[in-house]
Design a protein around this nucleic acid. Structure first.
Lengths: 345, 345
DNA sequence: CCTTTTATAGAAAAGGTTTTCTATTTTAAA
DNA sequence: TTTAAAATAGAAAACCTTTTCTATAAAAGG
C-alpha cells in the first residue's frame, strides 16, 4: 500500500489538515509541529498524490504537447524549448505524436482533456483541424496555443516564425550576391511552402526577373530523409537543363542538403558555381561540406515563446476575450554555401 | 463549470452508477437506457475525468519516459517506439528531459511518482543513479525499465542493444575487406565506448595485429553537432601522420560523419582510399556523400521492446520476483563508405 | 398463483487530497 | 483577573469517479 497523508498524520500525531498545511506552506503552523510532520514525511518517504490534488485544486501542473512527428529534427527543438520553460514552473509534459494524421490529432486532444491538462500546445497543427473550427472551439474549453499554424481569421492563440521575412531576407541576400537566375525548391501541400513561393514570385517580379517555370522545383514530400534524395534528383535534372540557375532557395534544410549532394554529383562547386540557401537551421545544416547558409527559425525560442504564451493564458483566465498572436523574427545564418554569382544571365 | 458524470445522469434521468456503467461497459444495462445515456453524453460533450478515475482505479494509463536529451536524434527514435506501442494501449506519455544531469533524473522520477504513473522507462540512465542503488530501490516502488544502461549485478529490468555483437560485426566486416590498419574513434567517459574499445583491442590481438596507440582516437565529447568537427580535426591529424590507417571504426555516426569530412578535406577518397564505418544508424548516416555504412541499433525496436517489457511488468505485478533482461541484435547496414583495402600494411 | 431466479438500477462508500468552517489554546489588552 | 483578539489545530465537506451492496421488477419454475 502506498503511504498517504493519513499515514503521515498518524505518525506525526496531528491531523490530516496540518500535514496538508506543512506540505503546501499556505497557513501558519507552529514550528515544533512542522518539525514533527517533516520528520514523519521523511521517515515514511511520503509523496503526495497529485491525482487527488488535481481533482480538488482543478489544476494539474500538466500540459500536453502535440507534434506531427517526434523524429523530425525540427520538433524536438521546439519541444525542448517548451520543456525548458514549463519545467521551471513545475509542469510536466504529456507528449503526443500524431504521425501527421488529423484524426490522431483530435484523438490526442481528447485524451489530454480527460487527463485534465492545464493547457495544450500544438506544434504544426493540421490545417484541416484549423479550418474545420476544431481548434477554435477547443480554445473555449482549454488554454491552447498553436505553433506555426497561423490561418488568418481564425480565433486562436498563435505563435509563429516570420517566414515571410525569412524568405525575403534569403532572397535579398542572394540578390545582393548578384544572383538573378534563382531556383526555388519546395514540397507539396504545406502551407508554409505556399507562403514562401508567393514571396518568391513577388520578389522576382519586383526585380524585373521573369519567373521561369522550370525554376520552380516541386517534390512530393518535404520533411524527412527521403526528401534529401528526392531533392538531389530534382536539382540534378534542373542543373542539366538549359540555362541552369546560379543559386537555389530551398524551403528547408533537408532539401538544401539534397541540393548540395546534387551539385557534388555533377562536379559543380558549391558555392563557387552554385549557391544554396536553406531554411530552418536544423542540426543537419552543420554537417555538410560546405556547411549550409540558412535562415534560422530559432525553434528553441519558438518553444519557449509558446510556453510563456500558454502560461499567460492559463493564469489570466479572466481576460478570456483577448487572443494573442506572437511573431518571431528569423535570422540569416551565413555559413559556406553561398557566394558571389559566377556568371550573369 | 466542466460537465460531470452527475450532469449526464440528470440529463438522462438515471443514476450516476448507470452512466458509469455505459461508460465502462462492464455491467449489463438495458438497451433503451443505454441509448438515453449515450445521447446525454453526446449532447453535453462529456469527457470523464481521469484524475477521479485514476484515484479509485489505482491505474492512470500514463507512463513516464525519461531521456537525457530530446534533441539527440537517437532518443526521439526510441521515444517513438515507446509511444507507438503505448499509444495502442491507450497510454499517454510523460516526457522528461534530464539534460544529462543525474540530479534532474532523480527530480523527474519524483514528479512522475507524484503523478501516479503506471510505469517509467529511463533511456540512457545515468551511471551514477544506477550505481548508487537509486534505480534498484525504485524498482520496488514502481514498474521500471532501463534502456541501454545495463550494469552487471544491478537488479533492474533492462533492455539493451548488443553493442558487443555490433562491434564484432563491424570489425569482422572491415577485416573481410582486407583492412588491417584500422583506427578506432571514441568519446570520453561513456560506458558503451569502453565496451567497444575493449572489443576492438581484443579483436586486434586475436588477429595478431599490434594495436598502435596512435590508432586509438579519443575526443572529449560524443553526441552532438560539435562532435562532427572534433572528429574531423582528430581524423585529419591522424591521417597526416605516419602510416595512416586504411579504415576507421567510429563509435557513432556523428563521429563517422566527421571522419568523412576529414577525408574530403584531405582529398582522400571514401571508400576507395579510406573506409569508414559508423554506429547507431541515426538519420544523418543517410545524408553524407557517400552514405555511411554503419551498425543499426534499431532504436525504434528498442523503444517498442521497452514498452512491451514495461507492460509486462505492469500487468504481472504478482510475479514481482523475476526481473527481465532483453538484448536486441544489431545489424550491419552496408551503404557506400566501406570498400576493399587499397593497400596493406 | 406463489416462490425463486435473473435482469436491471440505485445508494453509498471509497479513493487521497484541499479548504472552509469551527474549536481550542495562547497571547494581548483592559 | 477578565475579556477580546490572535494563533493554531481539527472536523467535515468537496472534488469526480468506480464499485460493492442492496433493492426492485420481470421472468421462470413449481
Amino acid at each position: 500500500m502506498k503511504t498517504t497523508i493519513e499515514d503521515v498524520a498518524k505518525e506525526a500525531q496531528v491531523s490530516i489538515t496540518t500535514v496538508s498545511r506543512v506540505l503546501n506552506n499556505n497557513y501558519p503552523v507552529k514550528e515544533s509541529t512542522r518539525k514533527k510532520v517533516e520528520k514523519a514525511i521523511a521517515k515514511l518517504n511520503f509523496t503526495p498524490n497529485s491525482l487527488a490534488r488535481g481533482l480538488i485544486r482543478k489544476r494539474t501542473y500538466t500540459v500536453g504537447v502535440i507534434v506531427p512527428s517526434m523524429t523530425n529534427l525540427f520538433f524536438p527543438e521546439v519541444v525542448k524549448g517548451i520543456e525548458d520553460c514549463m519545467g521551471q514552473n513545475e509542469y510536466t509534459l504529456f507528449l503526443c505524436d500524431t504521425k501527421s494524421e488529423p484524426e490522431y490529432e483530435r484523438r490526442h486532444v481528447g485524451r489530454l482533456k480527460e487527463r485534465q491538462v492545464d493547457g495544450i500546445v500544438v506544434i504544426g497543427p493540421m490545417s484541416e483541424n484549423i479550418r474545420s473550427g476544431f481548434f477554435e472551439a477547443l480554445t473555449k474549453e482549454v488554454p491552447l496555443v498553436l505553433v506555426n499554424g497561423y490561418h488568418r481569421g481564425v480565433r486562436c492563440n498563435f505563435i509563429l516564425t516570420d517566414e515571410e521575412m525569412g524568405t525575403l531576407e534569403a532572397l535579398a541576400y542572394l540578390q545582393a550576391l548578384g544572383h538573378r537566375n534563382i531556383a526555388f525548391l519546395r514540397g507539396e501541400q504545406i502551407y508554409s511552402y505556399d507562403v514562401k513561393e508567393e514571396i518568391f514570385t513577388r520578389i522576382m517580379k519586383q526585380s524585373n526577373i521573369p519567373v521561369m517555370q522550370e525554376n520552380i522545383l516541386v517534390i512530393p514530400e518535404g520533411n524527412s530523409v527521403e526528401t534529401v534524395d528526392m531533392s538531389r534528383d530534382m536539382v540534378i535534372r534542373r542543373l542539366e537543363k538549359e540555362n541552369p540557375p546560379t543559386a537555389i532557395f530551398c524551403c528547408n534544410d533537408w532539401m538544401a542538403t539534397g541540393a548540395i549532394n546534387a551539385a557534388k554529383h555533377l562536379g559543380v562547386r558549391v558555392p563557387e558555381d552554385f549557391s544554396i540557401i536553406g531554411f530552418d537551421n536544423i542540426v543537419i545544416s552543420q554537417l555538410s561540406e560546405p556547411k549550409l547558409t540558412t535562415i534560422d527559425q530559432t525553434m528553441f525560442k519558438l518553444g519557449q515563446g509558446a510556453a510563456e504564451l500558454l502560461l499567460e493564458v492559463i493564469e489570466g483566465k479572466k481576460g478570456e476575450g483577448s487572443l494573442k498572436k506572437v511573431i518571431l523574427e528569423t535570422k540569416l545564418v551565413k555559413r559556406n554555401s553561398c557566394a558571389v554569382a559566377s556568371r550573369t544571365v
